[in-house]
């Protein structure tokens, strides 16, 4: 059962074509990776899904054409975007940030339960629950951003470069938690990542973008074995 389907999606910033016909498909409970170098169009693909850029082609979520919708409308359908750069609210505490994530929800009890779940998922946040977000480390802020997205009880998470700027051990912690989240919650995911090795710990399938096109698509296992991937992203 397909949850998200992109068909020949194009996008441009002014005269510059950044997506030149991207197609992909994510099943219910599935996790899909988008790999590629800087400027290949990975982030733009996520922004296209979340409604932040105008696109050509078709984007279908849960049987509904969502291309042309506003970001807040897309979000209301249950697609939570964890943007690159995290964007947490520095003057709010960790707990307040989590509550912000649950802004559209009304089930007080469920919110409290989900906060507990997030803190269990990211024990680091538990220790900093009363700190202002601006006082968190980069890794903690990334965890907070993911946790905030979880708080909206999404059907699908869009994760953008969750490892960016983090020490390798921290990045691994973050991805461990994301894998556990996937296993326990069944939330579908689209994961954009430069570090293919990390991505493969979470996703089932992936595509490699180059200058706005899919050049290679396959399962994690297939891709891991390929020379191109090894050379380009695994430092092999």
């Amino acid at each position: 059962m397909t949850l998200l389907e992109l068909e020949d999606v194009t996008a441009s910033y002014g005269p510059v074509q950044v997506l030149d016909g991207v197609s992909l498909s994510v099943p219910e409970n599935g996790a899909f990776g988008i790999l590629g170098a800087n400027g290949a169009g990975k982030t733009t693909t996520l922004r296209a899904i979340s409604g932040a850029v105008r696109t050509g082609g078709r984007i279908v979520f849960d049987g509904k054409d969502i291309s042309g919708m506003r970001p807040d409308q897309v979000a209301a359908l249950g697609i939570a975007h964890v943007p690159e750069g995290r964007g947490s609210f520095g003057d709010l505490t960790v707990r307040e940030n989590l509550r912000v994530g649950a802004y559209l929800r009304k089930d007080r009890k469920g919110i409290d339960e989900d906060i507990d779940y997030c803190l269990d998922l990211f024990p680091n946040l538990q220790d900093r629950i009363k700190s202002n977000a601006s006082a968190l480390s980069g890794g903690e802020q990334q965890m907070l951003a993911v946790a905030r997205a979880i708080m909206s009880k999404p059907r699908m998470l869009l994760l953008d470069e969750a490892s960016l700027g983090l020490a390798p051990s921290t990045a691994k912690n973050v991805y461990d938690a994301i894998r556990r989240l996937r296993l326990e919650s069944g939330i579908a995911m689209v994961v954009v990542e430069q570090n293919a090795n990390l991505a493969f710990t979470v996703v089932d399938d992936a595509t490699v973008l180059e200058t706005g096109r899919s050049v290679l698509t396959g399962t994690s296992a297939e891709l891991k074995g390929m020379d191109e991937i090894r050379r380009a992203y695994l430092g092999g």
Binding site: P71, A75, A80, V82, P83, G87, F89, G90, G101, R148
Partner: peptide, 11 residues
């Protein structure tokens, strides 16, 4: 604080 984050949360 952040219009993009606001959108991503349905606001």
């Amino acid at each position: 604080g952040n219009e993009n984050v606001a959108s991503s949360m349905g606001i």
